[in-house]
Design a protein around this nucleic acid. Sequence first.
DNA 1: CTATATCGTGAAGTTACTTCACGGTGTAGG
DNA 2: CCTACACCGTGAAGTAACTTCACGATATAG
Lengths: 149, 149
Amino acid sequence: MTDARIAALDRVLEVTVLLGRDMTASLAGEGLTVARTTLLWRLRETGPSTQRALADALGVSARNVTGLVDGLVEAGLVTREPHPTDRRATLVTPTARADELLAGMAAGQAELADQLFGGMSPERLEGLVSGLDEVLERLRVLVPGGAAS
Amino acid sequence: MTDARIAALDRVLEVTVLLGRDMTASLAGEGLTVARTTLLWRLRETGPSTQRALADALGVSARNVTGLVDGLVEAGLVTREPHPTDRRATLVTPTARADELLAGMAAGQAELADQLFGGMSPERLEGLVSGLDEVLERLRVLVPGGAAS
DNA sequence: CTATATCGTGAAGTTACTTCACGGTGTAGG
DNA sequence: CCTACACCGTGAAGTAACTTCACGATATAG
């Protein structure tokens, strides 16, 4: 009876590995890395943010965010603006180029979703999503600091 | 109609993130890292292997395997034995301590599987697994070098 | 106006990767 | 036998993503 659960876990783990590979590869094609892109993606949702806020949102150290932002600045995807009221802080702001790029990535994401789930029977897709939702619920309890999108 | 697919992809992505965090954390508790453990796990399935074979199995460079094995040797989890017939190669062999540790990890894996899927209705679990299988099938086509367990 | 907390970053270190070069070894061809 | 050539593992050097610790600059509470 545990077998089925182990089998399920194996599937999830393998999906994880394959998907990670796919994302890393397709991002590398655009000269980006997963970490930097994650930051950019978050920025798209929240708008210009403090580095501290980004660090908290991503669950990494503030120092690390400094480095990621450095890379994104160099790539012309974000700028560091002075914070209007707090002179200690800097506001990380996406550039127009970042907006374009993110739009393209959203399209790519939709395409991937179609490739993975397109043509799948509605019942099966529904079963998948609801199953994953239940798993997610349990995972969030198990894993501390679950700050995901 | 694409929405449901995007939603599904989001779920998968989030599971990926959370599960990665959980694994990293619980391995860190035992003084291990994900990469080294992956190697050890593969070794458990295949038995003593050449570093080249491990590199191919894990899909990483041979040089990287050298480093990972270095760490595992230092941790007393594997030994480097001379290859019986090919004097160029070394056979990486798990120690008794590694066997114990891997047994414990298998138990931990079963426990995690129970935590994630235990008490889930059989239909839902079945729906999850079959859905993931279909996704995996498509992913393997999309992602090159899919050498997973 | 002083104590304290916070923001970002320099310095230093770890892990996981890569490519390139090279010495030691196996293996086929003449 | 002996010369190519392919292959095994590793030193050297480099990159990316992390970490902690220390520190200067600034905000903020008392």
